[in-house]
Amino acid sequence: MAKKRILIAKPGLDGHDRGAKYVARALKDAGYEVIYTGIRQTPEAIVSTAIQEDVDFIGLSLLSGAHNELFPRVVELLDNKGAEDIIVFGGGVIPIDDFDYLKSKGVKAIFTPGAQIKDIIDFIELQN
């Protein structure tokens, strides 16, 4: 089976990229094809990279509190472009109270501080 392709992306203006870079590198070490966007990406740019790179997953990382606006926007743009098969998950400083809202908007999983890379791998492997 082909290696799964994952885009790790930083939407919004937040510069905290330690977590995103860790996840990108650890997933790469675990054998996935990983692309990292760098910081300050618009949802439009993230979606266009995702389609161009033909990824299976997008992992969004945000610590600034703008997740309720920006995560759903990425899912919405994917839908508009007919790329709804790309699975979106997220991570960062995200209050648990926001999980239901984000999930209702199509974000499949949220990983918060203390999560381990094996949790993310387990999630990826469970998706078909």
Partner: peptide, 22 residues
Amino acid sequence: DLPTQIGYDSDHPMSEGEVGKV
């Protein structure tokens, strides 16, 4: 907030979701 730190007013498109947050 981040828009202020990056030199955008609150009405700039890049400021979406970030105004007053951090």
